[in-house]
Write a protein that binds this DNA or RNA. Structure first.
Lengths: 209, 209
DNA sequence: CGCAAAATTAAACAAACGTTTAATTGAAAC
DNA sequence: GTTTCAATTAAACGTTTGTTTAATTTTGCG
């Protein structure tokens, strides 16, 4: 499915507003105004608000995948280096696509909208099996310990990152960083999160309780 | 502020529906029907849908705190045992109050509704300073390493737990546990999460990269 | 140009929304 | 028994909602 400029304009506006106010908190009139198109264009191009959401989700979600294959196949990297690269890629992607990530977080809380549930499931399963490969490779090389729960490992990566991205407003307040410019702040927390997660993962993958 | 039976009835119904469908996705008619009261009773008792949300948030959120003081002051527990108890208490609370937790997660994504933002901030800051005390105690005892970022440590606890609770539907699918009864499944993932997080925390607090 | 299809518009649609009204019922207080 | 006030109701309020209509403009092609 390919979209013309106007359709993309609408989807961009919708993405931003859905992220900020949620699906039900955003009216099609809000979207039309933000996209600078006539109200009727939304139904004309997408059929309905619901279908617009699905189209946007599909369109913007297509590049919402980690480039795991490239990392996995890189023969110059050790398993631990691959894990580190995975972490950095993941953080970079979430921060770059914060709007989409917020929508995804919200959608996961609601178990209706089955078209989107299915897409989220595909995304998760794909990541799961690729990370599993990576961990098993490290275990065979003797770098990682046995008995690693891939699901929980992923939850720590996605959960901790999600927590930082979605609640950075509170992080700022608690750590007295409210005067720092937005760009500098983002750079700081990305670096901190990267170092932190790498250390945590190294610990989880090698530490014997 | 104390509420009568009818008011509590309404707040209970609202909590459930807000968790499932979000604030904007829930109509006052939905709430009235679920609470088995007349539509007008909501305005009568709370003034508005918005104020009902705030009242519910305040009422149900009051016991949404970890009993950290009791843990901290218990002289029979070592720092690491206190951390373990903190983890178990936290998991237990989130699972027991899943509805409220979903609402809280959703609200954190939206930075309006300032009355609720302030309450979330209070909750976070309180937890932050109490956990800081706990970690510092362990550091003084020589049990924990230096340079521990409390904020990120909390994010791993809250983020990983949140991820499991809010996406258990997907966890079930990926791990082929869809036939397991709900109660048994919940018991299983709580135990798994507890063991996992205790191990991760021990690693973070003692592991020297 | 002439014409057909696509794009765009303002207006209208019915349904659902949160809230208010005005009337009625219920239960204590005197 | 009467008064008083809180509780409860059905109905109506004016908006806003998502969607459709019907008319108009723009575009691309022979």
């Amino acid at each position: 499915m390919s979209y013309n400029d106007k359709q993309i304009q609408i989807m961009e506006a919708a993405e931003k507003l859905f992220a900020e106010q949620g699906f039900d908190g955003t009216s099609v009139r809000d979207i039309a105004e933000a996209a600078q198109v006539n109200l009727a264009m939304i139904s004309y191009y997408f059929g309905s608000k619901e279908k617009l959401m699905e189209a946007m989700f599909h369109h913007k979600g297509s590049d919402f995948k980690i480039q795991l294959e490239n990392i996995l196949q890189n023969k110059n990297l050790s398993p631990i280096q691959k894990v580190e690269k995975l972490i950095d890629d993941y953080i970079e992607r979430i921060f770059r696509k914060q709007c989409f990530h917020k929508i995804l977080t919200r959608e996961q809380l609601t178990n209706n909208s089955s078209a989107i549930v299915e897409q989220i499931y595909q995304l998760k399963q794909r990541n799961y099996s690729l990370i599993k490969q990576l961990i098993q490779e490290g275990q065979k090389a003797g770098d990682f310990r046995k008995n690693i729960d891939i699901s929980f490992l992923m939850m720590t990566l996605t959960g901790t990152t999600s927590q930082l991205v979605n609640t950075q407003f509170y992080y700022r307040k608690i750590n007295n960083l409210e005067s720092m410019p937005g760009e500098e702040f983002e750079k700081l927390i990305k670096k901190k999160l990267s170092n932190y997660l790498k250390n945590v993962f190294k610990a989880i993958l090698t530490y014997e309780g």
